[in-house]
Amino acid sequence: MKTDSRFKTLIKSTNDVNFTLFGEIVTVPKGTTLAAAILSNFGEASRITETGALRTAFCMMGVCFDCLVEVDGNPNIQSCMVLVHDQMVVKRQIGLRSIGISKDD
């Protein structure tokens, strides 16, 4: 079930990036961190831990590792530490990462 974003966007941009986030095409300003893009578009979990617990970004500064997602097929990426780019494909990090081809979510 989709949960609305817990944030509202106050600063609009004219220079936008479009990419695929959790199966939806989203538009955010260039220079946005991926975690910020997630939080401004989704209120629900961006990661599910190995025991099934729901998590989202927590510290936003690279400390807590709770904002892990899969970016362009690379698992366990700290979304607060990467900037969005056009055509990026971002999936939730579900459970432990695997080696080999990622599963669809």
Binding site: K8, T9, K12, V28, L39, S40, A45, F58, M60
Partner: peptide
């Protein structure tokens, strides 16, 4: 650890770096 619980510092980072406000 629940989604919807974040640090105040993280909210400030989001405000400053992305213009999104709680």
């Amino acid at each position: 650890t629940l989604p919807g619980v974040m640090t105040i510092g993280s909210a400030q980072i989001l405000m400053k770096s992305s213009g999104i406000f709680p």
